[in-house]
Design a protein around this nucleic acid. Structure first.
Lengths: 152, 152
DNA sequence: GGTGAAACATCGACGGT
DNA sequence: ACCGTCGATGTTTCACC
């Protein structure tokens, strides 16, 4: 289940650069190209690599606003309906079930405050007994998808 | 500054699949391979595409724990030191300056509660006047890097 | 933005350790 | 079980239209 040293180097490179050419990966690892490709394929099969994506500037894509919404569900029979809405709404980037006074924490990106208002008032608050508490991000200091490598 | 319809389709595909082959992109857009490559290169130069990355399963990489830490800075002269620490700590994936009672919201991934304790007690709380409020994620319902496309 | 040819990278089969 | 070599195939790249 855990990663050997070569896989660690590989994963770390893939997190930063994405997949470029096998030959580049190969001489990074001191292997031949087919061997590097094999390792990547195995990591994909094991689910360590979930996929590949381009990182898009949210502002360039017209998403100027970033907000975190804490959600409380006071009627637990609304849970399924809430989770269904979370999946359906493309503005909701993340939804975590969390400890503390609230039930869920949402990370939301949208065009402007008007779009946020619509999301909260029409999409979320239309569920009975659902309370929200919204925090707006004024600026982002750091945002990376890189994980701390573990030497295990 | 804004994206035409072809660029929108392109960006949407790149967010989901990463960069595969020019020919695949080309016939998705109804263009020739060099034309598709040109568009991608221009988007990279404009900063719309920030880069490419593999999506790694945090659990597979040994990061079992996800937490959100709200940080209050009661002495504003500590701000520079705090931001420097944020950059240096690889467990901190995100740091946003936010509205509300607290100043910053951190998204943190680490190995276990022991690593989280070390991060909070030794790395963060060692700054004078810094208060934290930590929320643990029990499970993650949704987590995507995709953005809602805007037709502009 | 399209076309063609040269350069390059990938994929699969085979052999070695 | 994992890695290297080699040849066939497919893809990118560049000059030019």
């Amino acid at each position: 289940m855990s990663l050997d040293e070569t896989d660690s180097k590989l994963v770390q490179h893939l997190m930063r650069q994405g997949r470029t050419t096998w030959s580049e990966l190969a001489n990074l690892l001191g292997l031949s190209a087919p061997a590097a490709a094999d390792r990547v394929r195995r990591l994909e099969e094991r689910g360590v690599i979930r996929g590949y994506a381009a990182q898009i500037s949210p502002e360039a894509a017209g998403c100027e606003l970033l907000a975190f919404i804490a959600v409380s569900l006071e009627q637990s029979q609304q849970r399924a309906a809430f989770l269904q809405r979370v999946e359906a709404l493309s503005e909701i980037q993340e939804c975590h079930h969390v400890t503390g006074a609230d039930d869920y924490l949402l990370k939301v990106r949208c065009r402007n405050t008007q779009a946020l208002e619509r999301l909260i008032s029409q999409e979320l608050k239309s569920l009975d007994g659902l309370k929200t508490h919204t925090t707006i991000a004024l600026s982002t200091v750091k945002e990376t998808s890189a994980l701390p490598l573990s030497a295990s």
